[in-house]
């Protein structure tokens, strides 16, 4: 009995010591280790160092001296927040139980929409809701359709898009307003554009990070819009309204819209966000995310800092005070 007990204990000890062969030592949870881990993860995987001309080692030198062995988690969070904001990317976040870092990409340009003005003077009280879209007829001669789409969250039904295009078939054009649309599901880009394009259209190419070097990417992964057979053939012009608050999936939509013949982009440059954000965890449990891909136009242009409009229009204070949306008015002119 004694022998078998000793044998069992020895076997168990052997097993648990074998497990240390397999498992690396646990990373220590202290401010310095957390800093090193976060810096290294970004260094190895973030996708826009070269494009944004960021010297990440210099950023380390700037923030590392601020890390102390004894600092509160709020103090540590503030250092990480500041370091990550050097990336100037709305897809970069750090999340602790009580704080969340963000980059205010929408403040990079002038405020280009007053939602109250849109509600009162363009959508008015008789606007229609179709799925995620709010819409009505606008303009003095009421010959232009206006569709407000404020989030790519949730699923867009092709039937909803078809209904809109069919309902407004006698209009001279359609305004599709994605200002202050912070994104959501990129799949909705295709749900909408597949109802609009008349032929298979290359919208953009994506490249996924494949190594630690700043230019280590694999791809391209092309993204196409393909005309839906059941679509309503809407051959009028469409004005897509954009601004600095147009971000992520909405920015993908703006990038894609550049390739569609009957679409014109009006407003201000988008907020960018053309890199897909991953997710991960620090040794202390905080969660982070940052971009691990890049998306280029078919011509190879990188609009990570914002997709530019075809027609630059900024909401003026005078118009706003009079209840006029400068950008919508310019779009109405364009579609007449």
């Amino acid at each position: 009995m004694k022998f078998s007990t000793i044998l069992s204990c020895t076997a168990l000890l052997l097993l648990f010591s074998c497990e240390t062969l397999i498992f690396e030592q646990e990373v220590a949870d202290n401010p310095r280790e957390n800093f090193d881990y976060l810096w290294q993860q970004c260094n190895d995987k973030y996708s826009f160092f070269a494009y944004k001309n960021i010297d990440w080692s210099a950023i380390r030198s700037k923030y590392e001296p601020q890390i102390k062995d004894k600092m509160t988690s709020d103090e540590l969070f503030k250092v990480f927040f500041a370091m990550l904001n050097e990336l100037k990317d709305g897809h970069v976040n750090l999340i602790s139980p009580f704080r969340q870092s963000r980059y205010d990409f929408d403040l990079l340009g002038p405020e280009n929409i007053d939602v109250r003005v849109v509600r009162e003077h363009y959508l008015k009280s008789d606007y229609v809701i179709t799925g995620p879209f709010e819409h009505n007829v606008v303009g003095a001669d009421r010959k232009v359709a206006y569709v407000r789409y404020d989030s790519f969250e949730g699923k867009v039904s092709p039937a909803h898009v078809n209904y809109l295009l069919s309902y407004y078939r006698n209009m001279s054009g359609l305004i599709f307003d994605i200002r202050q649309n912070g994104g959501g599901s990129a799949a909705n880009v295709f749900k909408i554009l597949n109802q609009i394009v008349s032929e298979k259209t290359l919208l953009y190419n994506s490249y996924l990070k494949s190594g630690p070097g700043p230019e280590d990417f694999e791809g391209p992964q092309p993204a196409y819009a393909e005309p839906n057979e059941d679509r309503f053939k809407f051959n009028k012009k469409i004005a897509v309204l954009i601004d600095r608050g147009t971000f992520s999936a909405a920015s993908f939509f703006a990038l894609a819209a550049r390739e569609v013949d009957n679409i014109v982009l009006i407003g201000d440059r988008t907020g960018g966000g053309l890199g897909i954000p991953n997710g991960g965890q620090l040794p202390n449990g905080w969660t982070y995310r940052f971009s691990i891909s890049r998306t280029l136009s078919p011509a190879g242009e990188n609009f990570e800092n914002g997709v530019p409009p075809d027609i630059q229009v900024v909401l003026t204070k005078g118009d706003r005070d009079r209840g006029v949306d400068t950008v919508i008015e310019r779009a109405i002119q364009e579609l007449k």
């Binding site: 097993l15 074998c18 062969l21 397999i22 995987k45 990129a186 799949a187 880009v189 295709f190 953009y204 994506s206 996924l208 990070k209 494949s210 190594g211 791809g219 992964q221 092309p222 993204a223 196409y224 993908f252 053309l274 897909i276 991953n278 997710g279 691990i292 891909s293 998306t295």
Partner: peptide, 30 residues
């Protein structure tokens, strides 16, 4: 693989798209 997630910006969320087969490593069983 390296980037860990699929690039779903083409509209297809294929979670296997970025999976890769690697040989090596260590495994023991008793």
């Amino acid at each position: 693989d390296y980037a860990y997630i699929d690039d779903f910006s083409d509209g297809d969320a294929d979670i296997f798209a970025n999976n890769k087969l690697n040989f090596g490593g260590l495994r023991l069983q008793w």
